Simulated scan of single mutants.
Amino acid sequence: MTKEVKIGLIGITALAMLIFGINYLKGINMFQSANYYYVEYTNINGLAGSSPVFANGYKVGTVRSINYNYAKPGHVTVEVEVDKEMRIPKGSAGELVTEMLGTVKMNLLLNFHSTEYYQPGDTLPGKTNAGLMGAAEEKLVPQIEQMLPKMDSILHSLNKILADPALGATLHNAEKLTANLDVATRQLNILMQKDFPQLTGKLNTIADNFLVISDNLKGIDYASTFNKVDSTLYNVQMLTEKLNRKDNSIGLLFNDPALYQNLSATTANAATLLEDLKAHPKRYVHFSLFGKKDK
């Protein structure tokens, strides 16, 4: 074998290994028999070659190629390689699903009610499913579009508020109020540290005095005290009854009208005597420094 033949065989082997490695990285098994089908779409939503093909969540094939169908403008034909044992019932479709990260995969929606099957090389109808991202786009985007004018109005109002000089004055007043609160807090802390302990000590002293008074009150014989009070009240009652009766001298003094009249007459006579004494003192008093003269 010549040197040139060896170099050629090595080159062919290297090329075959390169092709096999590239296909292996794409998920294509060149040593496994497969059937080829075509799926037609109007929008492939970013489907890429070598993307996996699933049926009931299980990988059954790979996307081999994607070609624009120039015979039917607006349509894209996707060539799909599936396992040879995989039989696709008629009425099935290839659905493109967009995942959260933006990748697109193909799901074969199999029609298990059909007893007829597509033949390798047949074309299946295609469907698109935007998935969670599409649902979010369909529902959230219109709401966001409705919110944008409101957000613009809110931002405009916020700018007006921020540009209002009254806001600066309000912030200045708030700063002053905060400073006053800080001063009040420090004064309250001083009060709590100095005056409050003294007040607490006085309150404790008052409480101790109340305890002493309470102990003293506990030592009082209330029964004996109330007995003495009852005895005193009884004596007062007896005295009052005697004063109201006429069978004793004090009762006669308070209840005899004749005695009252005599006292009134005596008082009147004494008053008349005093008036006459003031008017004619010589009738009652004879007094001389040199003795009585002979007449």
Rank of each mutant, 00 (worst) to 15 (best):
His156Ile: 07
Tyr58Gly: 06
Pro89Trp: 10
Leu155Asp: 15
Tyr284Arg: 10
Phe20Ser: 14
Pro120Ser: 01
Gln193Ile: 01
Gln261Asn: 14
Phe287Val: 12
Lys295Asp: 02
Ile88Leu: 01
Ala34Lys: 11
Leu15Trp: 08
Thr267Asp: 11
Val60Lys: 01
Ala135Cys: 07
Asn29Tyr: 02
Val229Ile: 10
Ile12Gly: 02
His156Val: 05
Gly46Ser: 03
Glu241Met: 14
Gln143Phe: 08
Phe290Asp: 00
Asp294Ala: 00
Arg87Trp: 05
Leu47His: 00
Asn262Phe: 14
Glu85Pro: 07
Ser114Val: 01
Val53Tyr: 06
His75Lys: 11
Arg283Phe: 08
Leu211Met: 11
Thr128Asn: 11
Leu252Met: 11
Met100Glu: 10
Asp276Ala: 12
Gly121Ile: 07
Ala184Trp: 06
Val60Gly: 05
Thr205Val: 12
Gln198Leu: 14
Gly21Ile: 09
Gly27His: 03
Met147Tyr: 05
Val212Tyr: 05
Gly126Pro: 04
Gly291Val: 00
Pro149Thr: 08
Pro197Cys: 02
Thr267His: 12
Ala223Gln: 06
Leu274Phe: 13
Ile28Phe: 01
Gly8Ala: 15
Ile161Ala: 05
Lys292Gln: 00
Ile28Cys: 06
Tyr118Pro: 01
Asn209Gln: 13
Leu158Gln: 14
Pro281Lys: 05
Thr77Asn: 15
Ile7Pro: 04
Asn129Gln: 03
Asp276Ser: 13
